[in-house]
């Protein structure tokens, strides 16, 4: 059974009242959800909170999901992305008004190569960061990314190309010229 079909099957079972099915969905999708949020924010606790809140919202609005409209994974990513943006915007407001109350971003120490790519992604504008993370690390087609982020497909395509260009500049232009073999 394909992964998508398995997820859809579990979701249908959950909508019919099978609470165990939710656990199955959680085990299948918590990792990609966490990975996306963490690569975007680099905040472990924040990422955990968003994933948990995503599943709380899924439970609350389980009957709103319709498999004909899209994949369950996209649906969850859409919920997670919106929750993340709302929470980040709230934090920015708190930081402006009362900076000593809003949690400050901490950075972990890593190998220098990993720091470079992590920093390059972190330095991308938020709009481009989401696109590149979803496209590269989660193999999502542009149509799905457009649905998750609530933007036109053309915008996804242009942001993707701009993000690639910016990453290459950040990581060292000459090193990334395409070579023919």
């Amino acid at each position: 059974m394909r992964l998508n079909e398995r997820e859809e099957g579990l979701m249908i079972a959950f909508q019919k009242g099978d609470e165990q099915a939710l656990e199955g969905i959680y085990l299948l999708l918590r990792q990609p959800l966490y990975s996306f949020i963490f690569r975007y924010t680099r905040d472990e606790q924040f990422s955990i909170d968003i994933v948990q809140d995503t599943f709380v919202k899924l439970q609350r609005y389980k009957h709103q999901y319709n498999p004909k409209k899209g994949k369950l994974k996209s649906y969850l990513f859409q919920i997670a992305y919106r929750l993340m943006i709302t929470k980040l915007n709230r934090r920015k407001k708190w930081r402006t008004l009362l900076p000593f109350l809003a949690p400050a971003q901490t950075e972990e120490l890593h190998h220098s190569d990993k720091m470079t790519i992590r920093q390059a992604i972190a330095d991308l504008p938020e709009t481009q960061r989401a696109v590149i993370l979803l496209y590269y690390y989660h193999d999502m087609p542009q149509e799905e990314i457009a649905d998750i982020l609530g933007i036109p497909k053309g915008t996804v395509k242009s942001r993707l190309h701009t993000a690639i260009k910016k990453l290459k500049e950040s990581l060292g232009g000459e090193e990334f010229e395409s070579r023919s073999f």
Binding site: L22, E23, Y26, R30, Q31, Y34, S35, F38, R39, E44, I48, D49, V51, Q52, D53, F55, V56, D113, K114, T116, I117, R118, A120, I121, Y136, Y137, L167, L171
Partner: peptide, 16 residues
């Protein structure tokens, strides 16, 4: 370069 960016997913429960 992008493939070098691995992350470890911690263990956490579904309920906050």
């Amino acid at each position: 370069k992008l493939d070098e960016y691995h992350i470890e997913v911690p263990d956490f429960p579904i309920k906050p």
